[in-house]
């Protein structure tokens, strides 16, 4: 049973992606946050409670209050080995090349995916 964390201010995408995941996985444990601040709290909570971090984290880049990059900056402050078993993907509708380049700055980030993630795409991941 895989754990997923979806972070997007657009709830439609959170819904869409959870639906797609459900199509692929039998009974995934999906946590959804429409605010990255809440998501950060959640991750910190997990670390405090010594609960395993999700296997997959899908993060949108452009979000109000704290965008995807800012969230990664916060996560980078945590011990990095925590993310050894976690695959973090930026999932965005941005076509800005600069975003793709910047994404590479974070060693904990596994990839950069364009919205919307389809079931085919998810299988490859």
């Amino acid at each position: 049973m895989k754990k997923y964390l979806l972070i997007d201010d657009d709830d439609i995408f959170n819904f869409l992606h959870s639906e797609v995941i459900k199509q692929v996985e039998k009974s995934p444990e999906i946590t959804i946050h429409s605010s990255s601040i809440d998501a950060l709290d959640f991750i910190k909570e997990c670390v405090e409670q010594k609960i395993n971090l999700p296997d997959y984290i899908f993060v949108d880049i452009r979000m109000p209050e704290m965008n995807g990059f800012e969230l990664m900056d916060e996560l980078m402050k945590l011990p990095l080995e925590l993310f050894d078993q976690t695959k973090i993907y930026f999932v965005t509708s941005s076509l800005d090349q600069r975003d793709r380049i910047k994404a590479k700055d974070y060693p904990i980030v596994t990839g950069f995916k364009e919205k919307t993630i389809t079931s085919e795409l998810l299988k490859d991941m």
Binding site: D10, I12, F13, L16, V20, S93, K115, T116, T118
Partner: peptide, 11 residues
């Protein structure tokens, strides 16, 4: 512009 469009396409 794309975000809603992509969500439409996803749906």
């Amino acid at each position: 512009l794309r975000s809603p469009l992509l969500s439409i396409r996803g749906i």
